[in-house]
Design a protein around this nucleic acid. Structure first.
Length: 684
DNA sequence: AACTTGTCAATTTTT
DNA sequence: TTGACAAGTT
């Protein structure tokens, strides 16, 4: 059942344990068996926690544990969840002590950007002669939070840096944090840092949580950041019963704050730690593993593992060299079709690329060859704007301080409240140290003084009053029934009429209406479980922790298109890695960081993470790996020559079979002709 | 308040 | 070359 190192890890008693789990070495199996083992030993399920990064991983883990235990009840008593869900749970438990209202909100990235934008407007461009990239500032704030650096500390350290992004962030970060507290909102990062702060400062809370778990397990440990380490340290401080599972060679998120030191120096941070390496791979052919091992061996600063397999050599890796990107994409489409005709299912195939930009051409060629595909990742949350709008109404009704929600809907659907009025409301709120919602309510009531002070037209005042009425009514109705209240709201604001009016086609309108109806489905299920208004606040918070593509349509036999990052944790019988060229992998941005980038002086132009990305890509393949590259590429309207990726040169020649696609290029139809051809069709 | 024009940049995104 | 975003027009 389990191989010797797996068994050693799964039957580990107490104390710190680091499991270095290579790609495809059965790490989830080890965690689930360890949990089952602990239960067998008589440890109560309530005293065991397993922490993951994704909802998907958490769900899978719970299912597999339930399966091993053959006991759903015990499995349900386990604490299994993401870091963020765990943090949210803690904050909810301690809500009153923190002084937060029941309806407190979770801000996602769109909300966060809104907050930063607003602050920038307030502080002005601050002497700088150029516009700041809002996202670059938010990235810095997030990195600071991940590193558990408080606003004041950051401001003190960075206020006089030469980098003006550091300087503006030093100004914005404290204001940002202040704003969030004023809105009774936490961002994703707060879900980790605020519990830590609480554990740091309140002894009673600390003791309670430390007594809660006797065994803690962390998955994908190489992806943890400093704040997460601190949280884990708190939880296991009394007993040190911490098992972490991860792979330093698959650390590809350091740009998001993940700190690989956590896994590299685990033994120093948790003295007496035992280390177990899982090096037997159950996924890939010997050839593929040899390639992966050869590439990753060029990295220093690693624990060092060599994957092996008792599978056969398998096929050689095909390295296809195309004269240009069109040919590269076209060949992938053709080869995919050939494989499918030879008996492969589409879903057995995946195309992996470094940047989403590369997907566009691939999509075109796949479509032209009638190859069905599905794209993982990519930001498609725009499509759900209508859902977010409706949720904003609910959020505001539950939490009057939620200014982002208010701003989002105060004039949606349009009711004649413009930027000027909004400015006045904001200024008033600022001056009075209160929320915009309170200002609104005062002005809307027959409070002549408040209305006069606000200095708005009578018609505007009516509009404001109407808006206040809508929210107030919604709030009252929510107390008696969530679904009915939301239905009444949708009627009242004529949401569907607005969607129909704003959509370019009837089909598009229907799709958006269906999306809203999807939300109603969620609300109905929620109500069936007896959830009232307070539970609704909980539901909305958890909804924001649910990724959009959580319900990605896995159904259907389709080729998977994804970035290398998005491919982590997945596996496919056949994998195409495209664009293995310098400046793409490793990416130009790594080789030459830009002003908006946060540059770590120790790791400037360090390509080791790019190499790990390459390693992750290779190890996704079970039976057959294709690597393609183009000799020229159209970049910013210019055709530029391309050189092979340095990682490609690290692959032993005997593992490769090289094919030249020059022949295929000669029969290609010029892209312009294809465009003209399609221009004759009217796509809805 | 919807449209137009100009500017700037062009990675990766588990929550 | 495409696109996103914000300021400027009608």
């Amino acid at each position: 059942m389990l191989n010797p190192p797996q068994r050693e890890a799964a039957s580990h008693g107490g104390g710190p344990l680091l499991v270095l789990a290579g790609a495809g070495s059965g790490k989830t199996r080890v965690i689930t068996h360890r949990i089952a083992h602990l239960i067998d030993q008589g440890i109560p399920a309530k005293a065991i926690a397993a922490v993951t990064f994704t909802n998907k991983a958490a769900e899978e883990m719970r299912e597999r544990v339930a399966h091993i235990l053959k006991n759903g009840k015990v499995a349900r008593e386990l604490t299994i969840g993401t870091f963020h869900a765990m943090g949210l749970w803690m904050l909810r438990q301690e809500r009153e002590a923190l002084g937060f209202p029941r309806g407190f909100a979770i801000y996602d990235q769109a909300d966060q950007l809104g907050v930063v934008r607003e602050i920038l407007r307030r502080v002005g461009n601050d002497g700088a002669d150029r516009r700041f990239d809002v996202k670059a500032i938010l990235t810095r704030i997030s990195l600071a939070k991940n590193g558990f650096i408080a606003p004041e500390a950051y401001a003190a350290a960075k206020a006089n840096e030469a980098d003006d992004y550091d300087v503006i962030t030093a100004k914005v970060y404290p204001l940002y944090q202040e704003a969030l507290r004023g809105f009774a909102a936490f961002d994703f990062d707060d879900l980790i840092t605020e519990p830590v702060r609480l554990l740091d400062t309140v002894a009673e809370v600390r003791d309670r949580w430390r007594a809660r778990f006797r065994f803690v397990m962390v998955d994908e440990y190489q992806d943890t950041n400093r704040a997460q380490l601190l949280l884990v340290q708190h939880l296991v401080a009394d007993h040190g019963n911490l098992m972490v599972v991860g792979d330093d060679d698959q650390s590809i998120y350091s740009w998001r704050g993940a700190d690989p030191t956590n896994i590299l120096r685990f033994a120093e941070m948790f003295p007496g730690a035992k280390i177990v390496k899982l090096e037997q791979n159950y996924r890939s052919s010997k050839t593929i593993l040899a390639a992966a091992n050869a590439v990753i061996a060029n990295n220093t600063k690693r624990h060092g593992k060599t994957l092996w397999s008792d599978k056969g050599q398998g096929e050689l890796i095909t390295h296809a060299v195309a004269p240009d990107v069109e040919t590269e994409a076209k060949w992938v489409a053709q080869e995919a079709r050939r494989l499918q005709e030879a008996g492969r299912r589409w879903q057995d195939l995946a195309v992996l690329y470094r940047s989403n930009l590369q997907a566009k051409l691939l999509e075109e060629e796949l479509r032209a060859h009638d190859v069905p595909y599905t794209m993982y990742g990519g930001q498609q949350f725009f499509e759900r704007k209508e859902v977010k709008d409706l949720i904003a109404y609910l959020r505001l009704a539950l939490n009057g301080k939620d200014e982002l929600a208010l701003r989002r809907i105060i004039n949606y659907p349009a009711r004649g409240i413009g930027a000027t009025t909004l400015e006045k409301l904001a200024a008033r709120a600022q001056a009075r140290h209160t929320s915009m919602w309170e200002v609104l309510k005062a002005a809307a009531q027959s409070d002549e003084a408040a209305a006069a002070e606000l200095d708005v037209r009578a018609s505007t005042r009516t509009a404001l009053a109407d808006f206040v009425d809508i929210i107030t009514r919604l709030r009252e109705r929510l107390a008696t029934g969530v679904v009915a209240a939301t239905r009444a709201l949708v009627e009242e604001i004529a949401l569907y009429d607005d969607l129909r009016g704003a959509s370019p086609s009837l089909a598009a309108a229907q799709r958006r209406i269906d999306n809203v109806e999807g939300l109603f489905g969620t609300l109905t299920r929620h109500e069936a479980k007896g959830g009232g208004r307070d539970a609704l606040a909980d539901l909305l918070r958890h909804l924001s922790l649910q990724s959009d593509k959580d319900d990605k349509d896995e159904a259907g036999d389709k080729i998977v298109l994804t970035t290398l990052h998005g491919a982590k944790g997945l596996e496919f019988p056949v994998v195409f890695m495209v664009g293995l060229e310098e400046e793409l992998l490793p990416h130009a941005r790594t080789l030459q960081p830009q002003v908006t980038d946060v540059i770590d002086p120790d790791h400037a132009t360090d390509v080791s993470e790019e190499r790990r990305l390459c390693y992750v890509g290779i190890t996704r393949a079970q039976q057959k790996l294709y690597i393609t590259r183009a000799c020229t590429r159209l970049t910013r309207g210019r055709t530029v020559p391309r050189t092979p990726s340095r990682f490609l040169l690290e692959l032993p020649d005997e593992l490769l079979e090289v094919i030249d696609l020059a022949e295929l290029a000669r029969e290609k139809v010029p892209a312009t002709e294809v465009k003209d051809f399609f221009a004759n069709f009217n796509f809805d």
